[in-house]
């Protein structure tokens, strides 16, 4: 038996030779960037909001005015995005063919709270395509009709109000922390796996309130009361009647807004980064992209590289301070 197996090992040698000649035929050629499809790493599962928007904004990439090559979405989900971004910061080749989608404030908050391989110093932002602000929601039959009602109740009953959101250290969590700090109240934050159960628990009355994405809240507006939006301005397009927290007298800014955009790993050649920074915002401005995004109920907010860089820096400073208490507890 054993001998028979060993004898066959020599057969593998023959097979090997035949096969190598076949496989070796595909060579590598160098040409002007980009000369082959560009991968875009998405750190969330297919079908999620980030994935779905990344697919829309990258669908016109092959047009010669934009990148001249298609973008291929590669999903590397896990641990709230950490698996994909860790891989991106440590393994991705800085040659311009491997880019990733970022989610703010997740990327920065996670790099502050966890032992991640990424931080704002080894990632280069290229451009921002969208912004989904967090909104404070309660069920239709909830006794709270405004932020003031909720704050007054929380002052009387510290920690009794449960607030759901799509996980830890995501925009919804940041918004909850900001609200607690600005209003001087204590809430109980219930992290769920993604925004869908968080929304479901609010509608079903399993929690008393929740922070959720503006786009999802808008879709479910008939079953909800939307109390306030955690942004600097009202959203004229979808929810013109919902006040911002600042209008309600609570100092919550836009730090929890879920910004989505494209970034490159550190070490990508300057010429490539400049090319991308110039072309990608144009690609986001394409009419077809705007139409599809609007149809999907996803707000567009396009920012160029300089603007994104400034925003990243501001968030890093602010979040380090906001999260410092939680960090000490760990």
């Amino acid at each position: 038996m054993n001998k028979a197996i060993l004898r066959r090992l020599q057969g593998i040698g023959i097979a090997l030779l035949a096969g190598l000649t076949f496989f070796a035929s595909s060579g590598v050629r160098a040409a002007d960037y980009p000369d082959r499809p560009i991968s875009l790493i998405v750190a969330y599962s297919p079908g999620g909001a980030t994935d779905f928007q990344a697919r829309i904004v990258s669908m016109m990439a092959a047009k010669p005015d934009y990148l001249g090559q298609p973008m291929v979405i590669i999903n590397k989900p896990g641990a709230g995005g950490q698996v994909g971004w860790n891989w991106f910061a440590s393994e991705a080749k800085p040659n311009g063919y491997e880019l990733a989608a970022y989610n703010l404030p997740h990327v920065i908050a996670q790099s502050i709270m966890f032992d991640t391989k990424y931080n704002i110093h080894n990632l280069i932002p290229i451009a921002n395509w969208g912004a989904d602000p967090a909104v404070l929601i309660v069920a239709k039959d909830s006794p709270f009709n405004s932020v003031k009602d909720l704050v007054a109740y929380a002052k009387k009953h510290p920690g009794k109000i449960t607030v759901s959101g799509a996980g830890l250290y995501v925009g919804h969590h940041i918004a909850t922390l900001q609200l607690e700090k600005a209003a001087g109240i204590k809430l109980t934050y219930i992290p769920t796996k993604g925004g869908v159960p968080a929304m479901q628990y609010v509608i079903g009355g399993k929690v008393m309130a929740g922070f959720n994405n503006l786009s999802d809240a808008y879709r479910n507006r008939e079953r909800l009361k939307i109390l306030a939006i955690a942004d600097l301005q009202r959203n004229k397009e979808f929810l013109p009647d919902v006040p911002t927290f600042k209008e309600e007298g609570i100092n919550v800014d836009d730090s929890s807004v879920n910004f989505r955009g494209i970034m490159a790993p550190k070490g990508t050649p300057k010429a490539v980064v400049d090319f991308l920074a110039q072309r990608i915002p144009k690609m986001f401005h394409d009419k077809k992209v705007a139409a599809k995004m609007k149809a999907g109920g996803s707000p567009l907010r396009i920012m160029d590289q300089a603007q994104v860089e400034k925003m990243w820096q501001r968030r890093q400073v602010y979040l380090t301070e906001l999260l410092s208490k939680l960090r000490k507890k760990k």
Binding site: I5, R7, Q10, G11, I12
Partner: peptide, 22 residues
């Protein structure tokens, strides 16, 4: 694939095995 199917091929000799596996 080639390695598994050749090593464990029921054929008598490795050459015949490899010929079938390729």
């Amino acid at each position: 694939f080639v390695a598994i199917s050749t090593v464990y091929s029921p054929a008598e000799s490795s050459i015949i095995g490899a010929k079938r596996c390729l």
